[in-house]
Amino acid sequence: MGKVIGFVTGLVFGLGLVVSGMANPAKVLNFLDLFGTWDPSLAFVMGGAVLVTFVGYRLTWTRKIPLLGGVFELPRRRDLDLRLITGAAAFGIGWGLGGFCPGPAVTSVLLAAPGTLVFVPAMLLGMWGARQLPANALAAREPAPERA
């Protein structure tokens, strides 16, 4: 059942990226180009997504546990550390260079643009590399347990 829910939610997420235009790197780069060919569309993507998620999460959390059991696994860390900042900064530079963040890149794989087929393996390598570093590298302290 978890796999069915995983597939359906992934499909809906991917459709959202396609319908919104966020799966198109040109549109993302134009959103980021405030001083050039600015296309504000992606602010509407974020707005629509946060609106639904904000309300939906609060309705969901009136339950004690998820429908398929287990617990609501929410990040519990509150500290702002150098790890968060440097990671986000590096991610933003890459996002600004290619116009892809992980969701749109994954969604675009089977469309098989040559640039996508270079980007995705490099992204996986970068992810793998980050996982090889100690969990507390540049962190303010030992990470707190993630389970809520």
Partner: peptide, 18 residues
């Protein structure tokens, strides 16, 4: 509309899987 689909996906994943 696309953003709201993304939100729907996030809510469903939280509702079913946490």
């Amino acid at each position: 509309a696309g953003g709201m689909l993304i939100g729907l996906s996030a809510v469903l994943l939280m509702l079913f899987m946490g």
